[in-house]
Amino acid sequence: MNKKVINNINIIAFLLPAMILFIGVLIAPILLSGYYSLFDWNGFGAKTFIGFSNYVELFTSDAIGFIKALCNSLLLAGLSVFVQLPFSLGLALVLGRSIRGERGFLSVFFMPVLISTVVIGQLWLKIYNPSYGILNVFLTRIGLESWTRIWLGTKETALGACFVPTLWQYVGYHMLLMYAGVKSVSPDLREAAKIDGATNGQVNRYIVIPCIKPIIKVSVIFAITGSLKSFDLIYVLTNGGPLHATEVPSTLMIDMLFLRNRYGMGSTIAVMLIVLCFAFALLINKLFKEEA
């Protein structure tokens, strides 16, 4: 056996454990979900092959409400990209300037990321409580009683009330990613720009932000795919209600899988989520490449 063949065998042998793991925990479940999505199945009885009927029903049935759930997720993605990320970037740029108390601010902003989402959900449930919640109490105290609402129980306000803590929780996460990027920008570049008379704003706009573009791209991908997959906080706060106003694809999937025993339809939603996440990741990559 020549050396090249032996090398190839060695490469395969060393890659095999990781490949088995990768296929076992990622590829196989995706393929299985795709397979189950073609069946009408309650999870434990006999399966009936129905082709792409689940996909057709998913996009046409008002009773399932997938389109509405998807719109809610896309709205969250939009808010995440256009509100959460600029805010995180602003914080990262300010803290990256080595201001006083930098480490303390970093810890404070990052703290919500460390706290369990269920705990954060419970905290915001208390904040929104119509009777004793701090929000309504505050509004009443400052004379804005007419602004008080049943924040999580009214269709008009529930979605917004869910988005606020969802966006708030991950500001620190994106800030930390961008902060690491800001800190890695060479001080020489900043100094050179300053000598040329650039203001702090101009340094950020023309030097720092272009330098951390790859990190911003990663943040955008995380923000959009994270929004499409959002589940935990909404599950704790409203569980998709009232009247499905805060339904997102993941809560719908849980509903189909575990409450309605529709494993086929649940798998269809899972497949759609995977496809959408991949599609958005590719699209964002392409957009950032074109800009570069």
Binding site: N42, A63, K155, L243, H244, L259, R260
Partner: peptide, 20 residues
């Protein structure tokens, strides 16, 4: 009712309660 029917039913009950 079966799980699927029961949840469809609950969904409509919720709509009635919410005056939808």
């Amino acid at each position: 009712q079966s799980a699927d029917d029961a949840n469809t039913y609950l969904s409509y009950v919720e709509k009635v309660y919410g005056c939808e």
